[in-house]
Amino acid sequence: MSDKEQLLVIENLRTHFFTKIGVVKAVDDISFSVNKGEVLGLVGESGSGKSVTGFSMLGLVDPPGRITGGKILFNGQDIVSLSDDGLRALRGKNIAMIFQDPMMTLNPVLRIDTQMIEAITAHEKVARRIARERSRDALSLVGIASPDERLKAYPHQLSGGMRQRVSIAIALLNKPDLIIADEPTTALDVTIQSQILYEIKKLCRETGTALIWITHDLTVVAGLADHICVMYAGRIVEQGKISDVLDHPLHPYTRGLIGSVPSRNKRGSALYQIPGMTPSLLNLPEGCAFRQRCPRADNDCLVCPEITSEIEGRHLRCFHPHVEILHE
């Protein structure tokens, strides 16, 4: 893992929420890294801690949550120990984020141009006219027709897909090294979804921007990411190259996830479901959090499994991985 081109290295990150009814370990000891220009898929169910991981990287975890341990090294610099001003300078400039719901991310009472220009002037001293030109270029880059008119529009005058394109354009404005996309296509129609997906992929490839794509949808990541991290209850249970993980899932949870994706081959038979429910983060079972839903669990699993590396480039948190499929 000593690649020279490492952009982001996360080591043993823990983000906990100190609520009145107890400590919620939303992110609990996760480690991964992203190389320059690479796409990482962060997959998990709702409440598995994917979004909190994303917000941790920008220092935008809302109280009562805070990062309680670990390091987030961005270009070698630890984000966790940065001052508020240092973080602010980083946000939007080096690391940009695209949110899930385009209906909510743009300020309803400010024009698109205001919201774009301020993203530029927050980091550089440029004339408004130049900032405006750059905003217009960014809009046409993401496939918005007649960008000059759109600049003068208010968010409510644009459709959902258009608004998400605007958010993407805002994220691209300062040519960041890393974009964190938090389920940006979930709230959109399937057709728009694939358009946006295609465009982000293209833009990242062209600009050499690294991408962390947070999603619960395995099919989206399959065609997009280079690497994948599967999260469950605040921990990464399996990570590795996308083709390895999808073709040979070793962790029972990953297997369950892949098994429950509807596909044409399984037409007619009932869709597989992982038994049970996601545990509440307030009340996680001892040991492996997936233990109660896992067909392979036994007494070993009462202890939290350490991260193991069965094969080159694969990391697992499991005592009983499906290693047999590797030898088939």
Binding site: R88, R91, G92, A96, F99, M104, L106, E118, S167
Partner: peptide, 15 residues
Amino acid sequence: DYVKFARAKGLTNGR
């Protein structure tokens, strides 16, 4: 969300 998005753009708290 728009507040979080504004912060994610790197705007100052004052703005």
